[in-house]
Write a protein that binds this DNA or RNA. Structure first.
Lengths: 188, 188
DNA sequence: GAGGAAACGGCGGGTCCCGCCGTTTATCCG
DNA sequence: CGGATAAACGGCGGGACCCGCCGTTTCCTC
């Protein structure tokens, strides 16, 4: 499991990843791989050797953010009202995706097309982390039974993707998120 | 208003548009402009002369679809239950965006960044067409007052964008659309 | 320290988008 | 009808990107 790796390879991996985080945050999901290579001081081939596809790079870049969100889910599980906790978490997912460009794209990839060799895809990770949070809300009757964490995340990602090019993405995303949570028709 | 145009220019415009429709439908919103030019039998410069930006091309390609959806909105206005009519229309918007690639991207562009010289942007067109339909639903109390057509369309577009790379986009999109309509918490 | 494998990165090819600019061609008017 | 004129065309070169190849360097092991 632990692929033995040369020291310079690990060093380059880390450098590329660090540069990629900045670059993707700044330019979005289709940042130039060559630019990342140049800034990291490596050849473009080395970038592709460590991250064979753009998806792989985006997922690696997103990993720390995903971890933070997963931790947050655990924190919120079992704390306070179950519906509020779930909504708080989803709101944070939306906010993260808005502020950290590239994350939404990484989460929009098809789970089933994930590299089976490597660890879980980003979305699968998040789904597992959010499972208990959603489960509790469902048991409390705050959410319908058929709904999955994947549904909620996809919805959040969609909202982010659709508002990305707007004047004020954060405000728009938040507005739509609340609309989706409330549903189309006002509560009685 | 009616820009006098040479005959060959109009002919080329039509050919490019026809080719672009097929190409975008097949390859998605980032189809190759040069490929379109080649297939249409014109130079790539001619394509860019008629459609200065990719956005312009996408909006032109989407125009006929938009027109169809607008007509559909008019048909549905005043027919049947106002909530059902609105939902039927939105469902068709989603279905259209799923089946006609590129449409969702065209609708995700910022309204306010639209070319003010030319006619309305795609989204603005649709918003106007859906206005009466939504207005009736709001008056009937089926939709909260603050909601705009733009909100609903953006939500629909987001759902499509987020499910685009899934195994079965149509099914996923439909599922999420219903979830968003119903809201997170089940009805009493 | 030497051998061997792993990792590197430069190079060439292909595609794309873009601006320039000489050439073709439709249109207008004498 | 035919020339003038401006619109429209499209080929060309530049720059950026992604990708595969392959000779070279660098690290690890013994």
């Amino acid at each position: 499991m632990v692929e033995r790796q040369r020291a310079d390879a690990r060093r380059n991996y880390a450098r590329i990843l660090a540069v990629a985080e900045e670059e993707v945050a700044a330019r979005g999901a289709d940042a130039s791989l060559e630019q990342i290579a140049r800034t990291a001081g490596v050849g473009s081939a080395t970038v592709r050797r460590h991250f064979p596809t753009r998806r792989a790079l985006l997922e690696a870049v997103s990993r720390t953010r995903i971890a933070a969100l997963s931790a947050r889910a655990q924190e919120l599980t079992g704390r306070g009202d179950s519906r509020d906790a779930l909504l708080e978490w989803l709101g944070e997912v939306v906010a993260y995706c808005v502020s950290a460009r590239g994350l939404a794209v990484a989460l929009s990839y098809d789970d089933s097309a994930a590299d089976p060799v490597h660890e879980n895809s980003c979305s699968r990770s998040l789904e597992e982390a959010g499972g208990p949070l959603l489960g509790r809300a469902v048991r409390d009757g705050a959410v319908a039974a058929g709904v999955t964490v994947g549904d909620l995340i996809t919805l959040a990602v969609g909202i982010v993707l659709a508002t990305e090019h707007r004047g004020d993405p954060a405000a728009e995303a938040d507005r739509l998120f609340r609309l989706a949570v409330e549903g189309l028709s006002p509560r009685a």
